[in-house]
């Protein structure tokens, strides 16, 4: 699990890109391309290299009118999966 005070960071060289041909967002990283669904894009849209994990979860819970307890493990798993591949960092 990720601590509420941890800050997810998009490292240099990683960026969001809109794949207009397939009508979806992708994460472009060195030698990797990751396709996102709408929820994944919504999560990454909240990652501004300043917001703490707890703040991101709270904003998403408000936006989707869903309980924090439901959203937190999904967002943590999502971020951890990307962090394991060095596509995100958590400080």
């Amino acid at each position: 699990m990720i601590a509420d005070g941890a800050i997810p960071i998009v490292p240099r060289g990683v960026r969001l890109h809109q794949d207009r041909a397939r009508n979806r967002w992708v994460l472009l990283a060195p030698e990797k391309t990751i396709a996102l669904d709408q929820i994944g894009y919504a999560i990454l849209s909240e990652v501004d290299n300043r917001s703490e994990f707890g703040e991101i979860v709270s904003r998403l819970a408000s936006k989707y009118e869903a309980p924090v307890e439901q959203i937190r493990p999904d967002v943590a798993g999502f971020i951890n999966t990307l962090a394991a591949r060095r596509i995100l960092e958590v400080i």
Binding site: V26, K32, T33, I34, A35, L36, D37, Q38, I39, G40, I43, L60, Y64, A66, Q70, I71, D74, V75, G77, F78, T81, L82, R85
Partner: peptide, 24 residues
């Protein structure tokens, strides 16, 4: 739109590999 577990799929050589999501 309702909340759902997000999906991550790695695109590699034209193939898409599920990294994270309901089916991973």
């Amino acid at each position: 739109m309702a909340w759902a577990k997000p999906v991550l799929r790695e695109i590699d050589c034209g193939m898409e590999i599920n990294m994270y999501g309901p089916d991973s």
